[in-house]
Simulated scan of single mutants.
Amino acid sequence: MTDRQPLEALLIDPNPEDVRLFLEALENEKITNSINIVSTGAKALDFLHQRGEYTDAVRPNLILMDIELPQMDGQELLEELNGDPELMHIPVIVLTGSDKAEDIVQSYDLHVNAYVQKPVEPDTFLDVVRSLEGFWLEVVRSPPEYEEEDDLL
């Protein structure tokens, strides 16, 4: 589709090695979309609300996040996103090492769009990121941005 908006993604991950692999996967695919990175839930909220060092941040149209975050648990961050009318419509993919059933159930209860367990092997991790990127760039349609609810009618 040629009328696609560029992907503005926010990656929330405290693990520098996973961030490196994520960026490597996108670099190898020559992706021109913007990926912003923060390492904590608190920094994610600052980014999303354009506070502090993130006053010029662009609102993402996709959030990829680990649920195992320092300072603010990922589930708490999801609750914050769901409680904010300006943020609740941004698609969220949980990309995490956790395979705990309660994390999966709780994440879907908090309206994540997908829950993906990070593979241990780097090559498999790269394949997963490429699959997510292809799906979210080429298949999924996000809601258009709007300023008033009347625009939806």
Rank of each mutant, 00 (worst) to 15 (best):
Y54V: 02
R59F: 05
T96Q: 04
E86K: 15
Q50R: 15
I63D: 00
L81A: 02
N82A: 14
E68I: 10
D99W: 05
G97Y: 10
Q71C: 10
R51P: 04
E80Y: 13
L95D: 01
K100I: 00
L64E: 01
G52R: 10
G74K: 02
A101S: 10
G97H: 11
G83S: 13
D73S: 11
E86P: 06
L48E: 06
P91N: 09
H89T: 12
P91E: 03
H89P: 06
R51N: 11
L77I: 09
L48P: 00
L64V: 13
G52F: 11
D73E: 13
G52K: 13
L69P: 04
L62G: 02
E53N: 14
P70G: 06
L62T: 01
G74C: 07
I63W: 03
L95M: 11
E79P: 07
L81H: 01
Q75I: 15
H49K: 14
N82M: 13
D99K: 12
E68H: 12
E79A: 13
D84P: 10
L69M: 08
I93M: 08
G52I: 08
P70F: 07
D56K: 08
Y54W: 12
D99I: 10
A101V: 07
I63N: 01
M88A: 14
Q50P: 01
Q75R: 12
Q50D: 00
L87H: 06
D73Q: 11
I90K: 05
E68V: 12
H49D: 02
G83E: 09
E80A: 15
A57E: 04
G97C: 09
D66N: 15
L48N: 01
N61A: 05
P60I: 00
A101G: 02
E86S: 14
P85D: 13
I67T: 00
M88V: 10
